[in-house]
Design a protein around this nucleic acid. Structure first.
Lengths: 211, 211
DNA sequence: CAAAAAATACCAGAAAACCAGTAGAAAAAA
DNA sequence: TTTTTTCTACTGGTTTTCTGGTATTTTTTG
C-alpha cells in the first residue's frame, strides 16, 4: 500500500509545522508540502498528484469553502479534511457540500485528527466530536444553510459594513437609493435578520466579510 | 545559565504541539506545559514559577488582553510573548500596555519567533515584521487606542449585536429607551463610528464580541 | 470623605432604516 | 433561443436611529 501524498494548507507556519510533526510518523501518509495560500495549492495540484489535503478555510486569498470546490474541480479524488476555527454550522455544511470529507475544529486533539484521517481514507465523512454536536443539534435558525449572495449583494454588504448610508452607496454606484434599499432588504431576508446589527454579525460569523 | 521555564497557552492542541516541537531544541528553553484556558494557566502560575509564556489571546474563557494584566499581577517577572491572529493595532497596543514583551502574528515564521524570544529574554520589546508595519504606519483612526467600555456599555453592545432595538433592550433592563439611546451614542463616540454597522464591525475587530 | 466616573433620563427633531408589495430591463444560465 | 436570475426602481408609510445638548443621581475610585 502506497503512502498517501498529503499537503497542509494554512497561512500559519506554526500550524503547518505542528501538523507536519504530529503526522510524520503516520505510516500511511507522506507529507509533501505546506501551502500558505489557496492559489499556491491550486498551482501545485495542477501539476502534481495529491491524495489528501488538510485545509484551513481562513486563507488570505481564497475563501476556503470556495477552495474546496476548486480543489475538487482540479482533482476529484483528492480527499479534503478541513481543520478550522469556525464553529458556524452553515460553514461546516457548505464545506461538506463543496466536497470536503471531514471537518475538525482546531481545538480537537491530535488523536481525533488521526482518527478522522483514517475515516476519510476509508471513504467516510468524519467530524470531530464537537462538530458532531454542532451538526446534530441545530437550533431553529441553524437549519438554514449559508446564504448564496449575488455579486451585487456582496458588494453592497461590504459597503454597508463600512458604515455607508444607502444614499452614499447609491451615489458611489450610480444607482437610486431605492435600489440600495431593495438590496438591503434582500440581504436581510437571505440572512433571516431584522436589522443591520444582526446582519453584520451574521455576515461576520458566516465568513462573508473577508475574501 | 538555567533554562527558562516556558509555557504555551493556546486552545488549539495543534498549535501547542507545533510550538513544542519547534522549540524543543532551543538550548535556553524548557517547555513545562501547554494550557488551553486562561484559568488553567493562572492556577499553574500561582503555584509554580514560569519565566516565559507564549500566549494566544483568543482563549475560551479570558480575553487575552486582560489575561496579560492578570499574569503580570501574579508574576511580574514572567515574560509574555503574544502569538496571535489579530492584526488590529489597538489590540496589539493593549497587550503591550498590559505587560506583554512582544507580539507576533501566527503567520510569522518559526525563525521570527525564535528571534523574538531572544529579544524578549534580553529585556526588549519585540514585534514580528508584519506587526512592526502595523504599528509604524497607523492610519488616522488607528491612533486611537482600544476603547475602554463600562460594564453597562458592554452589556448594551452585546444586546445591540443581537439585533435588539433600544425599546426591547430598555424593557429587558427595566430602563428608559432614552437611556439606551444615550448608551448607544456613548458607544459610538468611544469607537468613533457613525452608525451601528460600523459599531458592530469595530467591536468585532477589536475583540469585544466574545469573552 | 471628596472627586470622578458611570448610570440614568430628558428635549426636539431630522435622517435613515425598515417594510410589503410591484414591475420591467438586463444579464446569466440552461 | 428560452428561461431564470439578477438588477434596477418605484409607492407609501411606519419605526428606529442618530444628533447635540442638558442635568441629576448613584457608584466607584483615590
Amino acid at each position: 500500500m502506497n503512502k498517501l501524498l498529503t499537503a497542509i494548507v494554512d497561512d500559519h507556519p506554526i500550524v503547518i509545522e505542528g501538523l507536519k510533526t504530529s503526522l510524520q510518523h503516520e505510516a500511511n501518509l507522506q507529507i509533501v508540502g505546506g501551502f500558505g495560500t489557496g492559489n499556491d495549492l491550486l498551482s501545485f495540484i495542477r501539476l502534481n498528484r495529491l491524495d489528501l489535503i488538510l485545509l484551513d478555510i481562513t486563507l488570505p486569498d481564497i475563501n476556503g469553502m470556495d477552495l474546496c470546490k476548486m480543489i475538487k474541480k482540479e482533482s476529484v479524488q483528492t480527499i479534503i479534511l478541513v481543520v478550522s476555527n469556525h464553529t458556524e454550522r452553515s460553514i461546516i455544511m457548505e464545506t461538506i457540500q463543496n466536497g470536503a470529507s471531514g471537518y475538525l475544529l482546531k481545538n480537537s486533539s491530535i488523536e481525533e485528527l488521526r482518527n478522522c484521517i483514517s475515516e476519510a481514507i476509508r471513504g467516510n465523512i468524519c467530524y470531530s466530536k464537537e462538530v458532531i454536536e454542532i451538526i446534530s443539534r441545530p437550533s431553529q435558525n441553524q437549519l438554514r444553510g449559508r446564504p448564496q449572495l449575488t455579486r451585487r449583494e456582496k458588494q453592497i454588504l461590504a459597503l454597508i459594513a463600512e458604515g455607508k448610508t444607502s444614499q452614499v452607496i447609491a451615489q458611489e454606484l450610480f444607482l437610486s437609493p431605492l435600489t440600495i434599499e431593495t438590496h438591503r432588504r434582500n440581504l436581510m431576508q437571505k440572512f433571516d435578520v431584522k436589522n443591520v446589527a444582526e446582519l453584520i454579525m451574521a455576515a461576520n460569523q458566516q465568513q462573508f466579510m473577508i475574501p
